[in-house]
Structures are given as structure tokens and as C-alpha cells.
Design a protein around this nucleic acid. Structure first.
Length: 468
DNA sequence: TCTGGGGTCCTAGGACCC
DNA sequence: TCTGGGGTCCTAGGACCC
């Protein structure tokens, strides 16, 4: 399973903040041990990040909103007690939020990204091999963790069991970052996900559950609904339920032909994983992305082409700097405009057009120029645009950019300009240097009315402590 | 009034070739 | 006029992840 949320680039394994002297590998970490995975997952990550620097929020219900303050993307445990759903539009639950004095936060990705980097660096100091799976999750490979007895403990030096070792990791993260985590341990990644789910919910587990060779594994699977199995979404779950398969245990025991027929090859892989046969290996290498998307819903409807162009320029600039960051060039540029015809929110009210860049391009100026042509082509006066975006696809290594004898290509001078822009934006903060067409007023910017300070990434917004 | 943003992989079906 | 069978490549859409 490769699908993952955007991971801040700085979480790359090449960027550890700790030096060798701080490495916590178990002393025996040179011998191979039984295969297995641990999944470390931060509890209610966004809500917990908000709490770290604002202790008044401790014990209070919190909801965190998506960009534009439109959807609910995270809840603290206390907020989960109310009838509020992650993913639902905020306005649907607003009355519950107000009535119960639930704290509302706009999302603050500067803060979450930085806290994530800290957690991942701590994890990296404990294990020889890890995979940063998403902003708040990482898989640890137990196979690289030496002679730790995965089953019953042993007489060696610290730590005696993998479960104890996991507790040490969890306590260290809490102490150093203030963030609570849960750890699930099992033979395969899908089982580790399930172990993690139980670790979070069960009081007895106290945040860590090891299902390796556990006599309780069937019971653990029986309690998990199919829709909560990693890789099974709502659509497949509906089909499975129709066929009488409701729990992870029933899924594991179902005939392979039935699973193949209902879910294809992916279903068989998930089934094998539930049976303890590992199909998803560690993927700790940061693969370059295969496509780069930058899009946004507007805080309000946009009708003027100049404003659309400002937004698209900003998005192309953002996408192309991410493109250069991974040393790629794009051979396909797509601009899509989604309108709000008749007041209906419908992805079908979408115009999309692409231009092929056969030689590959990583130059913002050139990409902006091409994108502006696509906007001109698609824009229809009188339409209200609700959301627009840019995609770069068909990526190749930038070293393979072809230079053509006949077409006018970005010059060396222009490429040098790109390097300088990236360097300055990197040093001074993204957006320090912009193109004139990006404008300065940004009526298209997302709403973000309840955002917390960037406590850890901006000098102006550091926490102030007063001694009394 | 108010529905996020950024990704990956698989499959079916059409076009095309020999 | 009659039109097979097997292969590859591409694309759009579906499904899933956080």
C-alpha cells in the first residue's frame, strides 16, 4: 500500500537532527530477529499539537478544521464523545460545537509539520530502519532490532521485551515533545495497524499492543469491522457486508475466490496480511513523487480572470518549486477550474485542459506562461469559480530535460534565476519572493480564522514565558 | 451561505499492430 | 463479401490512504 498523505520534505531520512551519540538502538542490535512491524501513531495528532503549546486546552474537547475552515479534519478524544464526525462539513456540527463550548482551531500545518519532524527524529534514534508513512505515523522494522525476544521476553540487558522497548519509545516521545503516541506490533503491516487500533482504545493495553504470536489475535480481529481494515474503504466494505463479511476475522477466513472477485488483487493481499503473510514491505526510501498537485477551494467565489490568474500563478510556483526540490521535470501540465453553476457544488462542473511539454520543464516562468494560456482557453465570463488547481505529471529526472534546437527554451540565465528564487524562499520563508502576477491582495486565499501561532517555526510567534 | 488537499495503484476498455 | 487471435500501450475512472 503506497497511498499516503503529504509528508513534509524535511522528514527525509537524510535530515536527522540527532548525532550518533544520541542513538538508542538496543545493545544487541546486530543480530537479525523474527520479522515483524511496529506502527507508531500519534494520538489525535493535530489536536495534540494544539495542546502542547496551549496547556489550557488540556482535557477540553477540540476540533481542528481543514484549510478554508470548511471541514473537520481532527478531533480530540473529548470531542469524539459528541456527535461530530471527521470529514464532515463544519457547519453541520457548528451548533453542537457552540452549545458544548468545544474549542475550534484552524489547521496550522507549519506547526504540525515541525512537530512531526521532531517525533520522526526521535523514532529514528531508536531503530535501524523506519518508514515515515504519514505526518503522524511511522512503521518500524523489527527485523533490524537485534536479539530482542519478540514473544515472551528474555534475560538480556535492556530492554527485555519488544513491548517494553515500545513503552520506552512512547515515553520518550511524550517527554521530549509532549505528544502521546500508540504503538501496535504484529507480523504484518495490516495486523500492526489493527494492533495499533486496539492499543489506542484498550485501557489494559496502555498504548502498546503486541499481537505477535498472541493467543488473542482472533478476538482482536473479530472486534474490527471490515471498513476499519487498512486498505478496505467504504465501497468495498458495502460489497463485503452484502456477502456476509463483517469483521476482519470473517474477511481473513473468507474463500479467496470470493475476495478476489469482490476486491481484486488488493483484497487478496490484505487477506494474506491478515493471515500473517507479509505483502507490504518496508518502504523507507523517499521515492520522488509521480505527480504534483496544488489546488485550493476559494474562501469566496471568484469571477474575474485576473484573480484566477493570480491564484494559478501562485499554485504553479508552489508546485514547480516542489518539482525542483525533488530534481524532477514535468512533461504534462494540467490546469483545472471548477465552477459553481446553479449553486451546486459538483466536481463535474469542471473544466480541465493540459499541455504537453515533450522535453520536460522545471522552470516556473515557463510553466506559469503555459498555465496562463490554459486559463485563457478555459475561462468563461459570468461563471463563478469555486476551486482551481494545477497538476504536474509525467515527471522525469531533471537531468533528462532535452534541449531542442528549434524551440525557444528557458535560458541558463532563467534557470539560474530559479535557483536563486528557491534559495531565497528557503531562507526567508516561502513566498518571500513572488512573481508579479501572484498579486498582493489574494482575495482567493483560504479562510483560516482560528489559527494558532507557528510556535516552533517562526521567531515572531515563539511562546513567551514569564517568570514570577 | 458554509463540503480540504495531496497522493498512489488497479482495472477496464479502446486504439493500434502484426 | 467474408474478418481471427494475441499482444501492447494509453487513458479515464474507481478506490483507497492520511
Amino acid at each position: 500500500m503506497r497511498a499516503r498523505a503529504a509528508i513534509p520534505q524535511e522528514l527525509n531520512a537524510e535530515n536527522p537532527i540527532l548525532d550518533e551519540t544520541e542513538i538508542h538502538y538496543p545493545p544487541e542490535a546486530t543480530q537479525p530477529a523474527a520479522a515483524g512491524f511496529a506502527l507508531v501513531d500519534c494520538n489525535n495528532f493535530y489536536a495534540s499539537c494544539e495542546r502542547v503549546f496551549n496547556p489550557q486546552l488540556k482535557g477540553k474537547p477540540i476540533v481542528v478544521l481543514s484549510s478554508n475552515d470548511a471541514c473537520i479534519v481532527a478531533l480530540s478524544n473529548e470531542a469524539k464523545a459528541f456527535d461530530i464526525k471527521v470529514g464532515a462539513p463544519f457547519f453541520e456540527s457548528e451548533h453542537i460545537v457552540k452549545k458544548n463550548k468545544i474549542v475550534v482551531c484552524s489547521s496550522n500545518f507549519n506547526l504540525y509539520g515541525d512537530m512531526s519532524r521532531r517525533v520522526m527524529n526521535i523514532l529514528a534514534s531508536f531503530v535501524p530502519e523506519m518508514e515515515v508513512y504519514s505526518i503522524d505515523e511511522a512503521f518500524l522494522n523489527l527485523a533490524g532490532m537485534g536479539k530482542l525476544d519478540l514473544d515472551k521476553g528474555q534475560t538480556g540487558r535492556l530492554p527485555p521485551t519488544i513491548t517494553d522497548y515500545a513503552r520506552t519509545i512512547s515515553a520518550t516521545i511524550l517527554k521530549w515533545t509532549g505528544l502521546p503516541v500508540s504503538i501496535g506490533i504484529a507480523r504484518t503491516k495490516v495486523l500492526a495497524k489493527i494492533a495499533n487500533r486496539h492499543a489506542k482504545k484498550s485501557l489494559k493495553a496502555r498504548g502498546v499492543l503486541n499481537l505477535i504470536d498472541s493467543p488473542h489475535i482472533d478476538k482482536a480481529l473479530e472486534e474490527i469491522h471490515v471498513v476499519d481494515v487498512w486498505g478496505i474503504g467504504i465501497r468495498s466494505a458495502r460489497k463485503l457486508i452484502e456477502k456476509g463479511i463483517r469483521s476482519a476475522l470473517e474477511f481473513r477466513e473468507a474463500p479467496e475466490m470470493l475476495i478476489r472477485h469482490t476486491m481484486g488483487i488488493n483484497g487478496l493481499r490484505i487477506q494474506a496480511e491478515l493471515r500473517g503473510i507479509s505483502c507490504y514491505e518496508m518502504d523507507h526510501t523517499q521515492q520522488p513523487r509521480k505527480g504534483i498537485l496544488c489546488s485550493q477551494s476559494f474562501g469566496r467565489k471568484i469571477c474575474r480572470i485576473e484573480q484566477l490568474k493570480e491564484a494559478i500563478t501562485a499554485f504553479v510556483t508552489n508546485a514547480s518549486s516542489r518539482l525542483r526540490e525533488q530534481h524532477s521535470a514535468a512533461r504534462l501540465l494540467t490546469v483545472f477550474l471548477i465552477n459553481d453553476q446553479n449553486g451546486l457544488w459538483d466536481e463535474k462542473n469542471s473544466d480541465s485542459d493540459s499541455v504537453k511539454l515533450p522535453d520536460g520543464c522545471d522552470n516556473s516562468l515557463e510553466l506559469v506562461k503555459q498555465a496562463m494560456k490554459l486559463v485563457d482557453k478555459q475561462f468563461q465570463p459570468g461563471r463563478h469559480y469555486k476551486r482551481v488547481g494545477v497538476r504536474l505529471d509525467d515527471l522525469i529526472p531533471s537531468s533528462q530535460i532535452q534541449t531542442s534546437l528549434f524551440d525557444a527554451k528557458p535560458t541558463d540565465k532563467s534557470n539560474a534565476l530559479m535557483e536563486t528564487v528557491d534559495l531565497l524562499n528557503d531562507k526567508l520563508g516561502s513566498g518571500a519572493l513572488r512573481y508579479a502576477t501572484q498579486g498582493t491582495i489574494h482575495p482567493w486565499k483560504a479562510k483560516s480564522e482560528m489559527v494558532s501561532p507557528r510556535y516552533t517555526t517562526s521567531w515572531e510567534e515563539l511562546v513567551e514565558v514569564q517568570a514570577k
